[in-house]
């Protein structure tokens, strides 16, 4: 399950960031997201979160979303894993 979450998240990030297949696999836990990638503005982040909700079947409350949770790939993945309690 954890691996599926990781794969799904990489695919969604690849879609949002327009990564080529394979490029999303090179994301590490330290890969910076919000605040590190200029193209990842608030609108793109909103789209990213909605897509995560739709594809992984979770609901993300607005007050759960902050710079820390979106800071890097590792923090986003841990957030989603906690949501799904795996």
């Amino acid at each position: 399950m954890t691996q599926n979450i990781d794969q799904s998240l990489r695919r969604i990030l690849g879609d949002v960031l327009g990564l080529k297949p394979g490029q999303a696999d090179s994301l590490t836990d330290d890969s910076g997201l919000f605040g590190h990638l200029p193209e990842l503005d608030s609108m793109a982040v909103a789209g990213l979160l909605t897509e995560i909700e739709d594809r992984l079947g979770i609901v993300i409350e607005d007050d759960e979303v902050d710079g820390d949770m979106m800071a890097d790939y590792g923090s986003l993945r841990r957030f989603v894993e906690d949501k799904l309690a795996v």
Binding site: V45, D62, D66
Partner: peptide, 24 residues
């Protein structure tokens, strides 16, 4: 609803970065 939800969410995220707390 989904068009609106996404835009409101973007506003909340942008606001939080600017130190402004808003509720959906």
């Amino acid at each position: 609803a989904s068009v609106l939800r996404q835009m409101v969410r973007a506003r909340i995220i942008a606001g939080r970065e600017a130190g402004r707390e808003e509720k959906h």
